[in-house]
Amino acid sequence: MRSKEPCTQAGHQSAPEQSGDEHRTAVKTLFREHNRALVSFLLARLSSEQEARDVAQEAYVRLLQLDSPGTIGFLRGYLFRIAANLSVDRVRIRAVRERTMEVFDEFSEVEMVEGQAMTHQEFEQACEALNELAPRCREAFVRHVVEGYSTPEVARELRVDERTVRKYVTRALVHCRARLRGSGR
């Protein structure tokens, strides 16, 4: 099914072969050193692990296709920029995966273990924890994290600025985590 394009590994004839190889190595290094960060970054922005994975792979593919490769520092910035843009688009292209896999064999082994679904008991603990917080803090948290309203939307509803919403949400999340940590996970 795959390998309609045998060009991936066997480019012996072309002139810029050397720099192509170097570029490939640079991207591999980047992958090794920053893939975990990239995936975390994407998971923070996207709703599913699969999407994060897709976007990460697409970002690497684009990086590989760069005409004028740069330094690792440049590539790293570029990688995250591509990923950020892609995560906005949520472009999912399955096709690129096959091409990527050849370069990143390890990709399938990257651990991206997501937590299990929340149990009802944990959920109740979270509710208890939230009840210890100020009502507005609770409200901001529930709207943003649980119900999925954007920060600007919550800010408008609660008539506070966005920084305050973020502060509320962080406070509540950190508090929940501290209370949930004692039991279970």
Partner: peptide, 23 residues
């Protein structure tokens, strides 16, 4: 924190209603 947020987001709709009541 990211995982906790993701898990809270993934709770069933009925729980989300329950949460508002509890809070």
């Amino acid at each position: 924190l990211r995982q906790l947020r993701a898990r809270l987001r993934a709770t069933p709709a009925s729980w989300r209603i329950e949460m508002r009541r509890k809070l």
